[in-house]
Design a protein around this nucleic acid. Structure first.
Ligand SMILES: [Mg+2]
Length: 237
DNA sequence: GCGACAG
DNA sequence: ATCTTGTCGC
């Protein structure tokens, strides 16, 4: 896919924060088209890491929503270039995802990132960053909270409460599976708060993560195991 | 100064 | 994220 917004990735944490501060105006928290309520093709992304080798393992899943099955999957292995710093996850994970996004030919209806969208100190978390880069609707679906407060959440699947930063709503806390820890939904790019929740609920399957995201995570794990067993030579870039 | 802190 | 088997609870 064509990359609409490019910038350097070889940055210090301070420069990364500055880039985010300068780019936050690019994030659009409004609905794109009404069609997006029922996306037909979604893409889910995930990245895993191996400390000993400093390698990272990226997976992409193209998912056919009506059919409920993957259309295509892709993976990529390369050295990790940025540490985990709270608030700067984009700079750790996106470099490994770029080759996969370049190889993606068809533009999906929605991209699901494994991390926050606007539920971020500067309102440009991983999922928003990816959406803006590709100028493409995206959704943040995180497994834990980065910032924000919220009321108690009912235990039933589908229950949701607002995630607030002060008096500003930045997303939702969603019970994606009964009696399981919640997940954190926020607009990535070109998606409203309301639509973000509709999309997440519409994508919900039997597990805590939606099927596309779950598969991406599984692929990442399998790839990691495989490279550990066979050695990096045949995989690394 | 201290605790929290996506993956 | 990752290290790791069984175990408790819905
Ligand atoms: Mg992940």
């Amino acid at each position: 896919m064509k990359i609409a917004w490019r910038h350097r990735w070889n940055v210090t944490p301070a420069e990364a924060r500055q880039l985010q501060a300068e780019a936050r105006h690019r994030v659009i928290v409004r609905d794109d088209s009404p069609v997006l309520t029922f996306p037909r093709r979604v893409v889910a992304l995930d990245v895993g890491y191996d400390r000993p080798t400093n390698l990272c393992f990226a997976s992409l899943v193209e998912w056919d929503v009506p059919a409920g099955r993957p259309l295509r999957t892709d993976t990529h292995v390369q050295p990790s270039t940025f540490p985990y710093v709270p608030g700067l996850l984009s700079f750790r994970e996106i470099p490994a995802l770029l080759p996969l996004l370049r190889r993606l030919r068809r533009r999906p209806d929605l991209i699901i990132g494994d991390g926050q969208g606007i539920a971020h100190p500067r309102r440009i978390g991983l999922s928003s960053h990816i959406g803006v880069m590709l100028d493409q609707p995206s959704l943040g679906w995180a497994k834990s909270r980065l910032i924000g407060t919220h009321d108690p959440l009912p235990p039933e699947r589908g229950a949701a409460v607002a995630l607030l930063d002060g008096d500003e709503q930045i997303g939702w806390v969603l019970r994606s599976r009964t009696a399981c820890r919640p997940t954190y939904i926020s607009p990535g790019h070109r998606v409203s708060l309301e639509r973000a929740l509709e999309l997440a609920r519409g994508l919900l399957g039997p597990y805590r993560l939606c099927d596309p995201a779950r598969l991406a995570h599984q692929l990442t794990r399998e790839l990691l195991q495989r490279v550990r067993a066979e050695g990096p030579a045949a995989y690394v870039r």
